[in-house]
């Protein structure tokens, strides 16, 4: 029996879909069987980020509507053994699926997969209700901005009201230099406000933009810092104790020298 994890944030554009794709690919790279579910019906993106767009035949509403079997709708990712995607419908909206149908779908998926990761749409309306209906764990993604943190707080309250206790936090797109200069909220500031456990911190990284456009998850990029951050988060989900990555680039000496030369 696998576990069902929903990736949510409240605010849009903080990196839910990127996080879902990378966690899925990362867990599959560890040899797990993983199903990714795009619950963002009407605005599907997860297939694009994974580079599977042109392979969609059936989608989630075809499964819940009984037009095809679940196995027919699941798209196998050829790069990662064990990674599958259940895409969202693009021509319908959030009312096309009900929370009960999502619950049944998650039950069916967890029989076959080690991890079922649901990409939740932005907002707190029916799309959100559908996405969390079948989940037993939640990951909240936020960026170091007041609006994103405020929305994350609202989401955590709603998750708790739906018996999804102890959600874990991923802070995305942090810029260590801006934090050091006091121009951006720090990890400590965000934890202080949200008061939940931190699962990981992903630094702002151009490699994410490049890999997303190419449809290749950054988690497989050995050289990028964001890829390293996602690999660490994957190991934490598996239950390993991994220390938080040092966000500042370079050692103490090079930082000192840079500061002396007025470069940072």
């Amino acid at each position: 029996m696998g576990e069902v994890i929903v990736v949510t944030s409240g605010k849009g554009g903080v990196g839910k879909t990127t996080t879902t794709a990378n966690l899925g690919a990362g867990l599959a790279a560890h040899g797990h069987r993983v199903a990714l579910v795009d619950a963002d019906i009407g605005l599907r993106n997860l297939d694009v980020v994974l580079g599977l767009e042109n392979r969609i035949v059936y989608d989630i509403t075809d499964v819940t509507g009984g037009h095809c079997r679940l196995r027919q709708a699941l798209i196998k990712d050829k790069r990662f053994e064990g990674l599958f995607l259940l895409p969202a419908a693009q021509t319908k909206d959030k009312t096309a699926v009900s929370p009960d149908q999502m619950k049944a779908l998650c039950e069916e998926l967890r029989q076959e997969f080690d991890y079922v990761i649901i990409d939740c749409p932005a907002g707190i309306e029916q799309g959100f209700r559908n996405a969390i209906a079948g989940a037993d764990k939640a990951i909240v993604v936020t960026t170091p901005e007041v609006a994103a943190v405020r929305d994350a707080d609202r989401i955590i309250g709603l998750l708790e009201a739906s018996e999804l206790r102890d959600p874990k936090l991923i802070i995305n797109r942090i810029r260590p230099r801006m934090v050091r200069h006091g121009d951006m909220m720090s990890i400590e500031d965000i934890i202080d406000i949200l008061a939940i456990d931190l699962l990981g911190v992903v630094p702002e990284d151009e490699a994410v933009v490049i890999s997303t456009n190419r449809g290749e998850p950054v988690v497989q990029d050995e050289r990028s810092r964001s890829g390293q951050a996602y690999r660490n988060i994957v190991r934490r989900i598996k239950g390993e104790q991994v220390p938080m990555m040092k966000l500042e680039e370079g050692g103490l000496m090079s930082r000192f020298l840079r500061r002396m030369m007025g470069l940072s």
Binding site: R150, D151, D153, R154, I156, G157, L158, E160, A195
Partner: peptide
């Protein structure tokens, strides 16, 4: 008398 609320009130609550 007073009403006792145990726990944090989050945004929207």
């Amino acid at each position: 008398p007073a009403r006792l609320v145990q726990g944090t009130l989050r945004s929207g609550q």
